[in-house]
Structure formats: C-alpha cells, structure tokens
Design a protein around this nucleic acid. Sequence first.
DNA 1: ACTTCACTGGTCAGACTGACCAGCAATCGC
DNA 2: GCGATTGCTGGTCAGTCTGACCAGTGAAGT
Lengths: 164, 164
Amino acid sequence: MRHSVEVSELDALDARLLLLLSDEPRIGVLECSRRLGVARGTVQARMDRLEQRGVLRGFPPEVDLAAIGYGLTAFAVLEISQGRRAEVAERLAAIDEVCEVHATTGEGDLLVRMVARSNADLQRVIDEVVDVHWVRRTATSIALSTPVPPRIRPLLERVADARA
Amino acid sequence: MRHSVEVSELDALDARLLLLLSDEPRIGVLECSRRLGVARGTVQARMDRLEQRGVLRGFPPEVDLAAIGYGLTAFAVLEISQGRRAEVAERLAAIDEVCEVHATTGEGDLLVRMVARSNADLQRVIDEVVDVHWVRRTATSIALSTPVPPRIRPLLERVADARA
DNA sequence: ACTTCACTGGTCAGACTGACCAGCAATCGC
DNA sequence: GCGATTGCTGGTCAGTCTGACCAGTGAAGT
C-alpha cells in the first residue's frame, strides 16, 4: 500500500467541498451533500479524511481586527544578529500586537506583521518590536490597503476544475 | 441612542466567546453558553451582534496549503511605477499562487505573499509576479519557517482579562 | 416613575448529526 | 481471471442542537 507521508493530492470533490465550505461555512454536512450531489455519508467521510490528512485544520472564527479597533497594520523586516533568530522570535511572540512572524531568506531575516489602534499606538508597537535585543536593522512599512486579502480560493478552484 | 458606526468595543464576554470559538470552533451555541456560564439566548444574541457589527465575519475552513502540496511560501516586495498600483494589483490577483497583496508605505509599494509546490514551481511563480508590467524593482524572500503563525489570540485575551 | 435594554430560564417543532447498515461498482494484488 | 478491498449510495435510527418564541427580572437612562 502507498501509505507514506506523501502529500496525497486533493481530488475534484475534495476541492469542491472546500470551496463550498469557504463560501458558506455554516451549512453543515447534509446541505453540502445536497449541493455537491453526493450522499451525505460521502461528505462525512471526505471531511473526516481531510481532517486526518491535516488538510482541513478546522473552522476558526474570522475576526475583523479593524472592527474591534485595530485598524492599522504594519510590516517590519528585521535583520538580526547571527544565530539569534529563535530568541528574537520568542520576544516578538510575547508582544500581543505581533500577529505573524516569518523567518526568511534574502534581505531581512524576519518578516513581522503587527496591528495597532492608532498612529501613536503603532509607534509604540513598532518601538517594542525594534527594541528587541539582537535586532540590528529594521525596515517598517505601514499597510495602506489590501488589494488581495488572504485567499486560497484560486488554488482550490484550479483543482476543482482540473480534475473535474 | 448611540447607534453610529463607531468601533463599538468588545466587552469581556464577547472576547471570551471569541476565544472559545477560536479554540473549539465546532462547539455550537449551546455548548458555548454552558462554558461561559450564561444563558443560551445570550450567546445567540452576542453572536448575532458580533456578526452585524462585522467583528465576526464567519467561520471559513482553515486549509493547510502545505498538506495539499503547496509547501513553499515566498514574499516579494515590489516597487512599481507611479500611479500604477491598481493595475499591478489586478494583475497579481489574477495569479492563482498569489495569496495576499498589501499596498505599503516605505521601501516598496506592494508586499506580495505567494505559495508554490516546489522550487521550480516557485521560480515560475516569482517570474510571473515580477514580469507584471510596471513592476520596476523587486526583492524576493523565501519563508523558511513561521515562528509566529497568524494569530489574534493575544489581543482577544487582553480584552477578556482587562474588562473582566 | 417610566421606558428601554440585556439577560435569564423555559418551551416548542423542526432539522441536523453521528452511527449504523446492505448493496454495488471499480480497483488492486495475486 | 478472481477474490479482497475500497469508496459511494441511499436508507434508518436515536439523540442533540437550532431558531423562534415567551414572560420575568434587574439595571440604566429620560
């Protein structure tokens, strides 16, 4: 049996199911089965398998930070001292307003996304970030708009169509 | 009545509800009411209000891109020709692998997040991105790891505790 | 004092879930 | 070529949850 850790691909039904759930996450298994034109048990089985495979990690609530006062987003590229990435990342994680950190190749070493309530607040947050020890150089940008909000739809659609 | 579009703050119960939903998104209204120690109707009303206010945008499925083959993530900072941001953003949006675009102040003009299946694939995606018209200069970084995955928990916890 | 609002604690019918099952078709391995 | 396996169908079942109500209560605002 071919049961390695291989990245078992999605088939069209999986993709269509995920798309459906993306559009209307509340609809439940029964409604899914109706829309997809398959038996309810099939949808159940697919969802179980997607979860087991780690593809479907869950249904976290999507909270609009802007709607609770955190209307400003900024990005910082940090250059840090050799071998201190873990320490710096840990310090960053301790800052509430830091919403995401990636370690990267290229110019900087860490890419940080953070949010704030106002310009003054943002100033404070940025200061907190750049004041972390071992941060050597920083370049900060404020997000003015988000032409493409986080999405995976196109990738799913490709699978849904291709292997239809 | 004070019914403007003000960014009506969350109270502690709202925050605790959102935290609860973050931890176990499948649990439903009844279980929430039990855990929070309030009546079911209260939870229902809170959730309705959070949705109306735009705070709670829904429960999209969280899909692990790595688990469906898109294991590589890269960021590109694009510098573009004066006044062409909209056009460029549109072209970028047309690329399936582009998962997020922000317009920013500072060094670059656009920050792009993209994913790919392999190094060769990433090369192709990057080429597609930087070949968009009006893109003048680019700096690309590959994400090696993500010390802080996207999160909003700390901010919610602050509210849940503070206004307890 | 009166009105408004939010929460409680209760009911109700309807719908959904998770767990089953047998039957059937396609695929796999030998 | 022939079982064995796998996945899907279409069905049942009891238990649970949902959304919609309702009257009563306490706090806050006019």
